[in-house]
Design a protein around this nucleic acid. Structure first.
Lengths: 298, 298
DNA sequence: GAACTCCATATGGTCAACCATATCGAAATG
DNA sequence: CATTTCGATATGGTTGACCATATGGAGTTC
């Protein structure tokens, strides 16, 4: 016994019409095969669905129940097909997204909000980790997509898309003598203690800071390293260190910290946000990437 | 495109094995037709379900989604069949049951409790009305089953099953001089005012009371008629009337009323409870009737 | 009782589903 | 480069699903 859509439809029409002849007409077929189809159905279910009285037919209670179930089965099938097609088109489903801590306050929430608005069927599962680990997870397929601050460790078969290019600015405690300046030269910080992103979490940003300072004629005294954003900002807000950080942190006002632009225009004082994914990423990932690209143009 | 159970099963096994050869083996078929079946499925859905990489296959996100949906569809089908069969066997479904008010305190709740225990899948929809209306509703198919006190109006094609035969006893206000007696003769009430069931609601019981009194040598003075049980009992408890009522009302102690057996053994002083239904009633009704029959033997 | 209604049965034809065997082609392996 | 692995393709056969027309048979109606 197979519950062909056709068979279910035949029964449903018959249940409505309560008349083999009229039902057959609506089904664009002749009456005898409809009789046979319903008989097959009843034999398959081992249940009598109709009371064939003279002058027409009536549904048995089982028949009425099956009419409901048949409708449900048809709907369930259509829904299943719809769902699968939406998943295939990337309009529904799960996307596992990784990100580094430093993006958690601005770029990530912006993306999540946009995704929720424009791709409400998508479930974005987020995971924070170090740059290297994220890249490995994308490579191995544990993540579909990762947002990193620094493309340096991405060398091989992965696809990389930069989507924000920002200046690095000085992050100073409010009590720092230069905290009120419009702009400063990096060299003015040569005597300060620095907090740097840990080289495992954000290798690129840490290295860039070193190089920028070298170009400015000094080696930064590194008092602390921090794994994550709140660690970095904590040291600065506490007045213990100064930092060199992407200017997007401005969007997230932290009490006790002033962000001051630098006069230098070195490539070491610029930083990008990039999305990494496997080139064979599925449709949902591409939807997300498109969304990012569109956002950038706004 | 039809979602044959076979086809869904084929996909599910393949999704588990991730290998056409092994899946085909488990499905007791050779590999090529399995390939074709999956291709048909993909063409039908217009969705790629598998990534055929060298060294095996992987499910696409849509494929994974469809695996879930396929399992659901199969389960839904089985559930539908199960449900319909249970309805056909009378283990599930709705039964519309009518009853007269006088049964509401004892016989009906007993039945409902027993039904809930032994036929938990059955939904019993109850409706209270007069005897005549109930019988009409059963005849017309508005009700499946009705419990009445008095079979008199059931004359035609309906089936009747008596399931309780009880004495009629005197219902006296506590302050009545005979309220404390072990038993009384009906004649002792010849001077009392009576409350009788209304002749529309319970025609049999009203007529029986009249006849019993006539046999005892007097015509009862009827001070009141009541449509329902609380009306009847209300008049008695208020001390305004005496009544002749089925002894099952004892099970429902009413403050202010004493039930006193009668010495007479007239057929007019016996009353039955009966179930009425159409002879072609469905399985659920017969389950209920069987349940009543079994209860009676306990 | 003749005509009619309505569903069941009988018979036959078409076609797609389903399966098998044999073979191909691409990629990985040693 | 030969071999192996693994899925796709080619070809052919069987079967059941599905439909049509013609007919039967029970019950109703005039």
């Amino acid at each position: 016994m197979e519950f062909t859509r056709r068979l279910l439809e035949q029964f449903l029409v018959l249940a409505e019409e309560k008349h083999f002849g009229r039902a057959a007409e609506r089904l664009a077929m002749s009456q005898p095969p409809l009789s046979q189809a319903i008989q097959r159905l009843e034999r398959g279910l081992e249940v009598t669905l109709l009371d064939r009285g003279p002058g027409g037919i009536r549904l048995t209670p089982a028949g009425a129940a099956f009419a409901v179930e048949a409708r449900r089965l048809l709907d369930a099938q259509s829904a299943a097909v719809e769902r699968v097609r939406r998943v295939a088109r990337g309009l529904e489903g799960d996307v596992r997204v990784g990100y580094v801590s430093i993006l958690s306050h601005h770029h990530l929430p912006r993306l999540l909000r946009a995704a929720a608005d424009e791709l409400p069927g998508l479930r974005v599962l987020v995971h924070q980790d170090t740059t290297a680990t994220l890249v490995d997870m994308v490579r191995s397929g544990t993540l579909d997509l990762a947002f990193i601050r620094d493309p340096s460790p991405v060398t091989d078969e992965l696809t990389l898309r930069a989507f924000a290019d920002e200046r690095v600015v000085a992050a100073l405690p409010h009590e720092h003598p230069l905290a009120g300046a419009d702009a400063i030269a990096l060299g003015e910080l040569h005597a300060d203690a620095f907090v740097l992103p840990s080289s495992t979490t954000l290798p690129g940003l840490a290295a860039q800071a070193q190089l920028a300072c070298r170009d400015a004629g000094f080696t930064p005294r590194c008092r602390a390293e921090a794994d994550d954003l709140s660690g970095l900002l904590g040291y600065i807000a506490a007045g213990l260190c100064v930092g060199l950080l992407p200017e997007d942190l401005r969007h997230f006002p932290v009490p006790g910290i002033a962000f001051v632009p630098l006069r230098e225009t070195s490539p070491y004082l610029r930083t990008t946000v990039a999305a990494v994914h496997r080139p064979d990423a599925d449709a949902a990932v591409h939807r997300l990437l498109d969304l990012i690209a569109r956002q950038r143009n706004q």
